[in-house]
Structure formats: structure tokens, C-alpha cells
Nucleic acid binder design. Structure first.
Lengths: 118, 118
DNA sequence: TCAATGCTTCAAGGATTGTTGAAATATGGA
DNA sequence: TCCATATTTCAACAATCCTTGAAGCATTGA
């Protein structure tokens, strides 16, 4: 993840509807969600959700694939991980004060680390 | 860090000049930098840097304090750490695929963790 | 082939954000 | 007090972003 990607990714996440969509897609996992289902759950119009989905796709944070009549969107975990990494490493220069809280979260959700930290 | 703060923080980081400023202030550390020095290093006009500094302050990512004729800006490490945490925990639901790369970075910059991971 | 479904694209307008240079404010020193 | 320095504020304008509804495209089933 280079700076240009990070800038557009931050821009993508700076909008309420889009942040909501990302959260839903992360939770939905690899199966993703159809555009219509996203619109319904986010309570926005089809054309509006389409606008935001395009923006999120342009930023690389999500991907789409057609499945019959539906278009399924999925979160790009790699890109999200890359953004976290950019924020910690490139933007924040790996400062311990900034990264320490991240370490706690990481420990809680990556099984191997949790073991080592016991 | 709640969602509202995170949204404005992402917005603050989605602009090239502001991202540049944050990086400089993180590196500068607790001493911070005067507005004029920031403008010079970022190669933007005083009034433009002032506009962006105000935006960054509004987002809580930096703080200001007057020092004689200068106004010194410093990075708010706590807010930056909070943002990393928000991105991993709230936005990404602590998904291991997303948080794993963050764990590596965290391990490199927090001495205690590095020990445990050897 | 026709109609229905699911979604996107487009154009228009409003809202927000970014840039610029001039004017205003605050501080410190002669 | 007067001037220089450091920075902000303001107004105007340009650029970008968001929302809306109508029209268009792709896919499926009758």
C-alpha cells in the first residue's frame, strides 16, 4: 500500500455510509453481500449505494463479482490490513505510543500471538 | 475514539498536505513544530497551512500551544493510537487476516512484545 | 420475445472542501 | 509607541463530493 492508495482509502472511510458498508462487508466475510442487500441494510437508495460502492472499489477496499442477477461485493482483507499497516508504519513511523494499543488488539485476534503473550 | 471522531480523522488524513503534516509532527515528537516551519517544510503558504492545521486540530489528531510569537503544533499520539485501534477493532471487527500484519509492525516497535515473540 | 428483477449510469443541483491573496491579530523588541 | 515577526481570519472563487430521480443495461424466467 503506497501513499496514493492510502489517501484514497482514508477518503473512502471518511464517509458515514461507506464506513458502514465496510463494516458490514468485513462481518459478512468471503460470501460478501449483494448490492441490494447492502442498500437495504444501510437504508440508502440503490443509486446512492452504487455511488458509494464504486468509490470503495476505486480505493481497493472492496471487490465485486457478478452472481446471476446480483452483484456481490466483498471486503478486501489484504487492502484493509495494508491500510492498518500504512497507518502504523508509514504514517506514524512505528511510534510505540501509537502502536502499543494496536498490539493489544492484534494479540486478542491472532491466536498465535495470544499464546506467546500469555 | 468513537465513530464520529474516526470519520473526521479519516477525512483529515485523506488530504496529501495534511498527511504530510501528520508525518512530520509524529517524527518531530513532543517538541512539535511551529506553524511557519511546517509551512516551509510542506512547501505551502502560511494561510494554507493554517487552514489544514485547523482541520487537523478539529479532528483531534494534533494540538497547538503558543510559544512566544510562534504557535507550536504537536501530534496527539493518543488520538493516533485510538484511530489505529478503531480501524482494527471497530471497523474491521478484529479480523485476524486484517490484524495479523499490524501485529508484526507492533512487535517491531514495542520492545516488550518483541522479546516475547523471539 | 416480453416482462420483471437487480443494479448501474447519467445529469442536475446542492453542499462541502481547498486555494489564494489581502487584511487582521498577537507578541516581542527597539 | 512603532515596527517586525508569526500566524490567523476572511472573502471569493474553483474544485470536489454527495444526493436524487430518471433512464439504461444485464440477466433470468414465463
Amino acid at each position: 500500500m503506497d501513499q496514493r492508495q492510502a489517501l484514497t482509502a482514508f477518503g473512502a472511510l471518511s464517509q458515514e455510509t461507506r464506513l458502514h458498508i465496510i463494516r458490514m462487508l468485513v462481518v459478512a466475510g468471503p460470501d460478501g453481500m449483494a448490492a441490494g442487500a447492502i442498500a437495504e441494510r444501510a437504508e440508502v437508495s440503490p443509486s446512492n449505494v452504487s455511488f458509494h460502492l464504486k468509490e470503495l472499489e476505486r480505493s481497493g477496499l472492496i471487490a465485486q463479482q457478478r452472481e446471476s442477477r446480483s452483484i456481490i461485493y466483498t471486503a478486501n482483507y489484504e487492502a484493509l490490513g495494508g491500510l492498518v499497516r500504512f497507518l502504523m508504519e508509514d504514517c506514524c513511523s512505528g511510534h510505540p505510543e501509537i502502536c502499543a494499543p494496536a498490539a493489544e488488539v492484534a494479540a486478542c485476534c491472532t491466536p498465535k500471538m495470544e499464546e506467546k503473550l500469555q
